[in-house]
Amino acid sequence: MRASPSIAPHGPDQDTYLVLDDFGRTGRAWRETDEGATDRETLILNLLSGEYKNPVRIVTFNTAEGWSRDVTVDVADEVRRRLVECGEISESILAFLVATNRG
């Protein structure tokens, strides 16, 4: 029996991160992402650079290990830690950080 190709965009030992972006009147969509840009570090750098219009949820999954989870708050916490390194942040990221604030 022939094996099906992997749906994971990279190696089986790497987690994949996707962003649900809110485009206002046109609705929400999982952002299309280059297969080499679905790792956590690239996601955080893209958030800090204003790549997303209005991120509302971030999920990660690993098909090889068979799990997925919502990591929105965890990623927001990491972005907060890195704000010191950034000059300016976009209004959308500021809104994202306010919406995910646990305190």
Results as ranks from 00 to 15, higher is better:
Met1Trp: 05
Met1Gly: 15
Arg2Asn: 09
Ser4Glu: 06
Ser4Tyr: 07
Ser6Leu: 03
Ile7Asn: 05
Ala8Thr: 08
Pro9Gln: 03
His10Thr: 12
His10Met: 11
Pro12Lys: 09
Pro12Ile: 05
Pro12Glu: 06
Asp13Asn: 14
Asp13Phe: 11
Gln14Tyr: 12
Thr16Leu: 02
Tyr17Thr: 01
Leu18Ser: 01
Leu18Met: 07
Val19Ile: 10
Val19Asn: 01
Val19Ala: 02
Val19Ser: 01
Val19Trp: 01
Leu20Ser: 06
Asp21Phe: 05
Phe23Cys: 08
Phe23Ala: 11
Gly24Pro: 07
Thr26Met: 14
Gly27Met: 09
Gly27Gln: 08
Arg28Glu: 10
Arg28Trp: 00
Ala29Gln: 07
Ala29Asp: 06
Trp30Ser: 02
Trp30Cys: 03
Arg31Ser: 13
Glu32Cys: 09
Glu32Thr: 14
Glu32Gly: 13
Glu32Asp: 13
Asp34Arg: 14
Asp34Pro: 06
Glu35Asp: 14
Glu35Thr: 12
Gly36Lys: 14
Thr38Arg: 14
Thr38Gln: 10
Asp39Tyr: 01
Asp39Arg: 04
Arg40Lys: 14
Arg40Ala: 06
Glu41Arg: 09
Thr42Glu: 01
Leu43Ala: 04
Ile44Glu: 00
Ile44Arg: 03
Ile44Leu: 04
Ile44Thr: 04
Asn46Thr: 02
Asn46Asp: 12
Asn46Glu: 09
Leu47Ile: 07
Leu48Tyr: 05
Ser49Gln: 15
Gly50Arg: 08
Gly50Trp: 03
Gly50Glu: 02
Gly50Cys: 07
Glu51Lys: 14
Glu51Phe: 12
Lys53Glu: 11
Lys53His: 09
Asn54Glu: 12
Pro55Phe: 08
Arg57Thr: 13
Ile58Gln: 03
Val59Tyr: 07
Thr60Asp: 01
Thr60Ser: 13
Thr60Ile: 01
Thr60Gln: 12
Phe61Asp: 00
Phe61Glu: 05
Thr63Glu: 01
Ala64Arg: 11
Glu65Met: 11
Gly66Tyr: 05
Gly66Ile: 08
Trp67Ile: 04
Ser68Met: 12
Ser68Asp: 11
Ser68Arg: 13
Arg69Gly: 07
Arg69Asn: 10
Arg69Ser: 13
Arg69Val: 06
Asp70Tyr: 08
Asp70Leu: 08
Val71Thr: 07
Val71Arg: 03
Val73Asn: 08
Val75Glu: 02
Asp77Ser: 15
Asp77Val: 12
Asp77Pro: 00
Val79Thr: 07
Val79Leu: 06
Arg80Phe: 02
Arg80Ala: 13
Arg80Thr: 11
Arg80Gly: 02
Arg82Trp: 02
Arg82Pro: 03
Arg82Ser: 06
Arg82Glu: 04
Leu83His: 05
Leu83Met: 12
Leu83Gln: 08
Val84Cys: 03
Val84Ser: 12
Glu85Ile: 08
Glu85Gln: 12
Cys86Asn: 02
Cys86Ala: 10
Cys86Glu: 11
Gly87Ser: 11
Gly87Ile: 05
Gly87Pro: 01
Gly87Asp: 10
Glu88Trp: 01
Glu88Leu: 06
Glu88Ser: 07
Ser90His: 10
Glu91Ser: 13
Glu91Ala: 15
Glu91His: 10
Ser92Leu: 02
Ile93Gln: 00
Ile93Lys: 00
Ile93Leu: 15
Leu94Tyr: 09
Ala95Tyr: 05
Ala95Phe: 05
Phe96Ile: 05
Val98Leu: 11
Val98Glu: 08
Ala99Phe: 04
Thr100Asn: 15
Thr100Leu: 02
Asn101Pro: 00
Arg102Asp: 10
Gly103Ser: 14
Gly103His: 12
Gly103Ala: 14
Gly103Gln: 12
